[in-house]
Design a protein around this nucleic acid. Structure first.
Lengths: 104, 104
DNA sequence: AAATTTCATATCAAATATGATATAAATAAG
DNA sequence: CTTATTTATATCATATTTGATATGAAATTT
């Protein structure tokens, strides 16, 4: 992994090996991170077609800042919130299944 | 929903309408619950083929009681933990995608 | 049927995720 | 350029999720 990518991930709170790239992340941990990032990206795409972050936040009884973090792949956002957000954009379990299956 | 099913869900911590069945759960909330239950069931199946709850707990730096709850669809278990557990059984993102897509 | 292994339930302190708020930065509209 | 709208960042008290531990219940073995 190059320096700029590492710094991008670290700035979002992800624990990226400071010494030897991803060597501290097991394959399972890496897959989980990638799943979360795929969900983030997809949430952003879907939401942008439909409404503002504030509108989605209201639907979810959440807050605009939290939606921003969800869409930016912040490590503090749980998969639970990501899925609730994506479902609130009208996505089906099939849609979500595709997003996750596309990782790897 | 019949009485016995409601009582089964409520005993696991799920908020099920006490008066009129699922009327308090939006379709999105229902889908999320079903996704979690599908993941639970699948985790149990996969894990049983391979190891004990204690062994899986060690792999995850978790605890046997928490794995039990994960496999029993307890509401206190996050999707994050469910996915980490399923990945620790060797599941791929494709496998997980299929499980979720099968809901609905 | 006693002993052992495996799984379920209860409690709890610590860690993590949460929504709220304030505000800055970016983008779009006028 | 100025203003309005939308999105990003920071802080924080609260709520939820967590692993640990103790222990009970079931199932399996001997």
């Amino acid at each position: 992994m190059d320096r700029s990518k590492r710094e991008r991930l670290e700035s979002k709170g992800w624990k990226v090996g400071t010494v030897s790239d991803f060597l501290e992340l097991t394959p399972e941990e890496t897959m989980l991170v990638e799943i979360k990032l795929a969900l983030s990206r997809n949430l952003k795409e879907r939401r942008q077609e439909l409404m503002t972050q504030s509108e989605l936040a209201t639907k979810l009884s959440s807050s605009q800042p939290r939606i921003a973090k969800a869409e930016n792949g912040d490590a503090s956002v749980s998969i639970d919130l990501l899925l609730r957000a994506i479902l609130a954009t009208g996505a089906t379990p099939q849609d979500i299944g595709k997003i996750i299956a596309s990782v790897g």
